[in-house]
């Protein structure tokens, strides 16, 4: 008869090993990029346009482009996503329609990012004739992050106690007034968390912007939403695979800026969430 405690020891060892196999490389990736990327960062790198065929100079246009894209995406996705979440938590009945909506959200979250790129190209660039532009890219990214915004907002709205709604309704206050004045204000931190997570996601995605907006090299800043723009993730892709002999510092520097941007957004989201949980009054 085998000793069950020895079996347990061996099993736990392998489980720990699996966990370390995930977490250690994550740490290493972050450390490598900080170690090699941080020295490349200076004011010039952040504020100048790329030079010598993107082998030197800065990444300013890509930062600005990403900023525009992310703002556009959130401007589109936040109102729709938030109202969709309000529908699901406050209005939806337990019926087939609700079931289909939830399934659609799951599917929207699962569509491969490159398929979003194709879709955005077919709909916004070609069909609506927006061309490859910030508008097309933002809308594509916006639809892509919609599920993130909806699911986190639903969570935030559901965390507002049902009793608050009952109290408000019992005073003869209408449903929408109740949502507006009681439910939404108390869900703001959660909604904010979801929004920032969505922003981070949009900032890091490459495939959806490949054909809808991203410019290989564009030294001047976009003048309107109908212009193309550079973007950080695409720029990193370009200088790592499409342009030979790029200085390692430029690559790591770009990767560092992108990673720092995305991770700091996630960090902010986490901080808001935990602060809110501690302060919660009910």
């Amino acid at each position: 008869m085998r000793n069950p405690y020895r079996t347990q020891k061996i099993a736990f060892f392998f489980l720990l090993l699996s966990t370390l196999l995930i977490v250690v490389p994550v740490g290493l990736i972050v450390v490598i990029i900080i170690q090699k990327g941080l020295p490349a960062i200076n004011w010039q790198f952040l504020s100048e346009v790329p030079q010598q065929g993107m082998r030197a100079g800065g990444i300013f246009p890509a930062i600005v482009g990403t900023f525009y894209l992310v703002s556009g995406a959130i401007l589109f996705a936040l109102p729709i996503g938030l109202l969709a979440a309000v529908y699901l938590t406050e209005y939806a009945k337990d019926n087939l329609l609700t079931r289909i909506i939830k399934l659609a959200i799951v599917n929207l979250a699962g569509v491969p990012s490159v398929v979003y790129g194709l879709f955005g190209f077919a709909l916004f660039v070609v069909f609506f004739k927006f061309g490859a532009s910030i508008l097309s890219g933002s809308l594509t990214l916006g639809i892509m992050i919609l599920p993130v915004i909806i699911t986190t907002s639903v969570e935030a709205l559901e965390s507002v106690p049902a009793s608050f709604r009952e109290v408000s309704l019992s005073l003869g206050v209408s449903k929408w007034q109740t949502i507006r004045n009681i439910v939404l204000p108390n869900a703001v931190p959660g909604i904010l968390t979801g929004t920032i997570l969505g922003l981070g996601r949009a900032a890091g995605e490459t495939a959806p912007i490949l054909f809808t907006v991203a410019a290989f090299y564009l030294p001047q800043l976009p003048a309107s939403i109908f212009d193309q723009a550079m973007a950080l993730p695409y720029h990193l892709y370009v200088i790592s695979t499409q342009v030979p002999n790029v200085d390692e510092k430029v690559r790591y520097g770009t990767a560092f800026v992108l990673l720092a941007l995305v991770l700091s957004m996630n960090l902010v989201a986490i901080v808001i969430r935990s602060k809110f949980r501690k302060k919660k009054k009910w």
């Binding site: 608050f164 009952e166 109290v167 019992s170 206050v173 209408s174």
Partner: peptide
């Protein structure tokens, strides 16, 4: 229903203050 609830108020089991 809103007009009715204005006329018929309610106090709940637990003290449910709004935040």
């Amino acid at each position: 229903v809103e007009a009715l609830r204005k006329r018929v108020g309610m106090v709940f089991a637990l003290p449910l203050s709004l935040p």
